[in-house]
Amino acid sequence: MRISLAMLIMDRLGGGGSFTELQALDFARGHVEMGHDGPAHLAISSRRPLLRGLGVYHGKRGWGVSVEFDVTRGPVTAFGLRQDRDGGFGFVVSEGEVVEGPLLQIGNTTSRVDFGCDPGEWTDAWSASGISHHWALGTGHRLAELRAVADLLGVGITHVQPGR
């Protein structure tokens, strides 16, 4: 439910909002690779989607088809909802930039995001925020808009931006 709500909020703010998780860390180039094979948002794609047939699907032998595309280069926002110990909710937000680089060809919506710091530091800070395994990725820097939404809803917001 939380990821669906995050995707809906990003969509309503005009940023798309694609289902996302960590895929890999590229320490040589300083990028976090993220994406997912699930619900993608075509508004954030840099090209027409590709249907990729897979001989191994989600680590299991067999056959499957997945939709693959890469996210448009430029500013993006990672956004998710976390649940606090007391049962309350909060927003977790981080702004970065989708950059050029090789992508895994695994049938996922994939992007290489530069958060302006070491990818390990970003991943540690993002994980320490209490975010769940999945979140939404949308185009544009949306921190100011998400702060306004959080204020209207009366929820806290955690801005993850190590090294800045």
Rank of each mutant, 00 (worst) to 15 (best):
E95L: 08
P49F: 02
V113I: 15
G74S: 12
M34R: 07
L22T: 05
G30S: 08
T109C: 11
V92E: 04
E121Y: 01
T110Y: 09
L103C: 01
M34L: 15
R52W: 00
G107L: 06
G88W: 02
A125L: 07
H31V: 14
H31N: 02
S46N: 10
G116T: 12
R73M: 04
G59S: 11
L51E: 10
Q105W: 09
V93I: 05
G38L: 14
E100A: 13
F89V: 11
V65S: 04
G120P: 07
S66V: 01
D118R: 11
G96M: 07
L42D: 02
E33A: 10
G55P: 05
S94L: 00
F91G: 13
V56P: 01
V67G: 05
R85S: 09
H36Y: 08
E97K: 12
Y57S: 11
D114H: 13
G87E: 04
R48T: 00
G59H: 04
W63Q: 10
R112N: 15
H36V: 02
I44V: 15
E97C: 08
W126C: 12
R29K: 14
M34W: 12
G116E: 11
S111E: 12
S45I: 01
G120V: 07
V32I: 14
Q83D: 05
G55M: 01
A43R: 14
V113L: 06
Y57N: 10
M34N: 05
A125Y: 07
D114C: 09
H58N: 08
P49R: 04
R82Q: 02
P119I: 10
P75E: 14
V71Q: 05
P102W: 10
R52A: 04
D37G: 15
R73K: 12
P49G: 01
R73L: 14
A78H: 13
F91H: 07
V92W: 01
G80C: 06
G96D: 01
Y57K: 08
V76Q: 02
W63D: 05
F89D: 02
S94P: 03
F79A: 04
G35M: 11
F91L: 05
L25H: 03
R47V: 01
L54D: 01
T123P: 01
Q23I: 14
N108M: 12
S45Y: 14
G90M: 01
V32F: 15
G53A: 09
L103P: 03
R52P: 02
D86C: 10
G96A: 06
E33I: 15
R82V: 03
F79L: 09
S46I: 04
V67D: 03
A43K: 13
F89S: 07
D86R: 00
D118E: 14
H58S: 04
R48V: 05
D37W: 11
D70E: 13
E97M: 13
E100Y: 06
L22K: 05
G64E: 05
D114A: 10
G120L: 13
V98F: 09
V76C: 09
D118N: 15
F69G: 00
V76L: 06
R82C: 03
P39K: 11
L103N: 04
V67M: 11
V92M: 09
R47P: 00
S66P: 05
Y57F: 11
A78R: 12
T77C: 04
T72S: 13
V65F: 15
R52V: 12
G64T: 06
D70V: 04
C117E: 13
E33F: 04
